[in-house]
Write a protein that binds this DNA or RNA. Sequence first.
DNA 1: CAGGATCCGAAAAGATACTG
DNA 2: CAGTATCTTTTCGGATCCTG
Lengths: 110, 110
Amino acid sequence: MNNHEKYTRYSGAQSVTEALKFLEGRWKLLILFQLFGGQIMRFSELERAIPGITQKMLGQQLKQLEKDGIIKRTAYPEVPPRVEYSLTQWGQDLCPALDALLTWTGKRPR
Amino acid sequence: MNNHEKYTRYSGAQSVTEALKFLEGRWKLLILFQLFGGQIMRFSELERAIPGITQKMLGQQLKQLEKDGIIKRTAYPEVPPRVEYSLTQWGQDLCPALDALLTWTGKRPR
DNA sequence: CAGGATCCGAAAAGATACTG
DNA sequence: CAGTATCTTTTCGGATCCTG
């Protein structure tokens, strides 16, 4: 292998590593899957839809996903407060990659 | 959304979560990228090729990857010992999924 | 309703030393 | 060479209580 190929492999690893950091942790994918297909959900809806998640973890992960540009948060200045979450375009773009991972899992020998 | 779609989304999340468990951690992808393309590498080669990894982490991750059926370990009964690592077929099958993730990373808005 | 703040235990990662 | 054992440090997740 030449140096170019070495470099390509290494930089690919770095990029994918970075990509996985956006998804890592026990809850992020469970949240994202709730939002796929253009769903719009409120905080309490997500809380109910994801069994076992605590408010702390939900809030924490939502904040990170928003900061990473994967989901969008919309707050309405009402009483009681209402906040809605949805995927950004980039968040929707994740679908094919997750499908590919699903396919891979399906190929797993047993 | 009906219950079937609910279930499908949930089970998809579970499967992808499971898939990511095979890849999670800071080092596994860096190891795998060294082996893509049918490379065969020894323990010490991997150690040198992956900056910052410790022997402990390398050994630990290699053991898990082997147990998960992603890489193959071949030990030669020599002195000094020689051990070679390569991808299994399933390990090679991972390529498209990682490519999809790379594509996704590339789409990231800045 | 939608969270933030705090404390705690478990788990993962890292540093270092040792071995067949 | 190819690891393992041990110890320390860091990170993660959960429980609980509080607030605009």
